Simulated scan of single mutants.
Amino acid sequence: MNIKMGVAKAGIKPSGDYDILVLKFPPSVYSAVFTKNSLAAAPVIYDRLVCSLQDKISAIVVNSGNANAGTGQEGFENAEKMAQITAESLGIDKEEVLVFSTGVIGVQLPMDKVKDGIETASSSLQELDLELAARAISTTDAFYKYYETNGLIEDKVFTVKGIAKGAGMIHPNMATMLAYIFTDVKIDKPTLDQITKLVVDRTFNSISVDGCESTNDSFVIVATGESDVEINDSNKLYFAKKVYEVALELAKMIVKDGEGATKLIEINVHQAFSKDEARKIAESIALSNLFKTAMFGNDPNWGRILAAVGQTHIGIDFSQVKLYLGDFLLYSGQPLEFDKKQASEYLKNNKEIRIDLYLGRGEEEWTYYTCDLGYKYVEINAEYTT
């Protein structure tokens, strides 16, 4: 794919690391999803306007270290200036640029530094380096998040690759994350929008670290159309699965990197009446701090899981419910005898934990990802701006 990137150390991040990323590509079909938080950041408000008017984009600019959220009219004007500076630096129209920010809320962008950083990044474009791009957009991330895969349609190869950031303030609609996926297929926008919704619902909108919905959450998929692969009704499901693969891996990385997390927890709800019901129950478990702290403490306390199910007020018949922790059957319509010590060892010795809940009332299911909650999360977020 003909995607060029430039990075710069503009001095926005206190660490002094890379904090500006510029991505340039041919005019491309794209699809975007943003936070539903009412305190949407200035770049989110700006990008929504662009998306309502523009069918194709040619560039993405990201600053990290400052969210440009809760910054009023000045913040919106600064987001627009970022687009203008990027467009002038790359020789494209301002309307072809999407703008993103991540970092501390409520602080105006230092536009002199941002301008210098964008111009520096734009003047030193190179081939896309996923690790370096992911590094430039990170904030409290403990590791850089990127993934790529290839697909084959009618003996023609296509590529899907992506980067993401996020560790805290993670909860659906979207989460405090930025994620970008690129592919070289030819695809029309309605089809790409359809695939984006399906993929995002099952990945980035099915993760939670701390239940805190962010102001800057954004996901964009860009299709450059450079390959000979054309997506149509006969192959769009296969293509969607490849996009899903990349998105799921990035989403799981975000949860693994949950601030202070020691475990990735996969919550599978089976035999629900509807997908919405399965999702609501899985989310209720994922949001339970009692459950998450029990996982951190290696405590197979199934009562906390079922209590989280009960608080959905759905009216589950618990006499039909079965609950597994890994291979341990903890509950089947009533409390069961199980080896608590071995169940605790399972939690202690595994970084990826699986919960399976069978409701016995239907055929639908949903999978949700979360992490445990420990001391480090409090330490990181208690001192975030001080």
Rank of each mutant, 00 (worst) to 15 (best):
V246I: 11
E127A: 13
I153F: 12
D129Y: 08
K186V: 12
L198M: 13
V185A: 01
G166W: 10
H171N: 13
A251T: 04
R202T: 01
I195L: 13
S208E: 03
E148Q: 15
I153M: 08
Q194M: 15
A223H: 08
F239I: 06
G211N: 06
I181Y: 04
K186C: 09
S218H: 04
F239N: 03
I207C: 01
E154N: 15
T203L: 05
Y144A: 03
L198T: 12
T176R: 07
I181S: 01
K165L: 07
A134W: 09
A179M: 12
F219S: 00
Y180D: 00
D193Q: 14
K145G: 01
K256A: 03
L128Y: 12
D193A: 07
D201C: 02
K189I: 06
M174H: 05
F182K: 07
F143Y: 15
G211K: 07
I254H: 03
I195Q: 05
N205D: 14
N216A: 12
K242F: 02
T215W: 11
M177C: 11
A134L: 08
E127Y: 10
E249C: 05
D141M: 09
T196N: 09
T191F: 11
A240R: 15
R135M: 13
E226Y: 10
A134D: 03
T224P: 06
H171V: 00
N205M: 08
A179R: 06
D141A: 02
I170E: 00
E148C: 05
N235D: 05
P190I: 08
T191W: 06
N216M: 10
F143N: 09
S218P: 01
E131Y: 08
L132Y: 03
F182M: 04
F204Y: 15
D184I: 10
A179Y: 06
E230V: 15
K241S: 14
A223M: 07
N216K: 04
Y238P: 00
A247F: 10
G225V: 10
D201R: 12
K256P: 00
I137N: 03
K241G: 11
K145D: 05
T139H: 10
D210H: 10
T183W: 10
V160D: 04
E154M: 06
T191P: 02
D217K: 06
L237H: 13
A164W: 08
E213Y: 11
A142D: 14
T224N: 05
P190R: 09
F239H: 07
T149R: 11
L248F: 11
L128I: 12
V222M: 07
